[in-house]
């Protein structure tokens, strides 16, 4: 107990936990796009940066409240998602991956060359308004939203597209519109996450949202277990915290991290919690409780 208290009051651990929460929100967005709908996006960090810059600029220039800035940042990212989605979601698989990868690079280069974003110098002086509590609240809200989306008529249509898009279309699903909607919602979450990130770091640099960040997010989702919310949570937590807790073997940190991933791929090719769903966990929990009640 004492140890936990120490962790919760140590600024370093708080920072790591807050970052984990922020990445989780972005990862949940990608979970909807890749895990649920089956569309590969290699440019999720690009949408995060759109949300981050939008929210930061609003705070710096218009001094609007944080919640509003986060929402607008999310909407801006979602809007970009729709703009990219309509032409490119007609593509599938690798082609879509390349397009999203290219898009994120374009966003990065645009931010480097714009004056208002501070160019290569980055954007500094953003007030620190993100707290661990706020991130936890937003993350819990995101999980709740994702759970509801996945277990609905809307979510079933997305999963149908992932499983077999021709059959989905034959069942009356307008696959293009549904893919674009999933993309819009997923990138909205990335935008919100970016806004929180901006107000935590107080400084934004386009290089923070490069290809590596996009692939990190994809790793969280894939290694956690595609299509599983608990998997996304676990994947994000393990893969965000592992590099931090491996600092004591500083030199070999990335080596161990990579080895960890290879081992996971060998032993859990479907991800840590592939095929495990919140619905099943809830059902298992209520069943156990009812057997406990019966035995009393």
């Amino acid at each position: 107990m004492d140890g936990i208290m120490r962790i919760l009051t140590d600024p370093y651990y708080i920072q790591v936990l807050t970052l984990t929460g922020i990445y989780l929100i972005a990862a949940l967005g990608l979970h909807l796009i890749t895990g649920v709908t089956g569309q590969f996006s290699f440019g999720h960090a690009g949408f995060m940066s759109i949300g981050a810059y939008t929210a930061a600029l609003l705070t710096l220039h218009l001094h609007t409240p944080l919640i509003l800035n986060l929402l607008v940042g999310g909407l801006a990212a979602g809007f970009a998602g729709i703009l990219l989605g309509f032409p490119s979601l007609k593509l599938t698989g690798d082609y879509l991956g390349i397009t999203t990868l290219g898009f994120a690079e374009i966003v990065r280069v645009v931010f480097i060359n714009m004056k208002i974003t501070g160019g290569t110098q980055g954007l500094a002086g953003i007030p620190k308004e993100t707290s661990l509590l706020l991130v936890i609240v937003v993350a819990v809200l995101s999980v709740w939203c994702m759970y509801r989306i996945q277990n609905s008529r809307f979510g079933r249509a997305l999963m149908a597209i992932r499983e077999d898009d021709i059959a989905a279309e034959a069942m009356g699903i307008n696959t293009l519109i549904y893919k674009v909607k999933a993309f819009a919602v997923g990138t909205f979450f990335a935008g919100v996450s970016g806004g929180l990130y901006a107000h935590l770091m107080q400084y934004l640099n386009p290089f923070d949202f490069g290809v590596t960040r996009s692939f990190d997010l994809l790793n969280f989702v894939v290694l956690g277990g595609l299509g599983s919310i608990p998997g996304t949570i676990l994947g994000t937590t393990v893969l965000t915290m592992a590099p931090e807790f491996l600092r004591f073997v500083n030199k070999y940190r990335m080596l161990i991290y990579s080895a960890l991933m290879v081992i996971m791929m060998i032993f859990r090719p479907n991800g840590l919690l592939g095929g495990v769903h919140l619905k099943d966990l809830r059902r298992a929990f209520t069943r156990r409780r009812s057997t406990e009640m019966a035995s009393q």
Binding site: I149, S152, R153
Partner: peptide, 12 residues
């Protein structure tokens, strides 16, 4: 699917 209509808003 085609004879029902709840969308994203309804899901949440």
């Amino acid at each position: 699917h085609s004879s029902s209509r709840a969308g994203l808003f309804g899901a949440v």
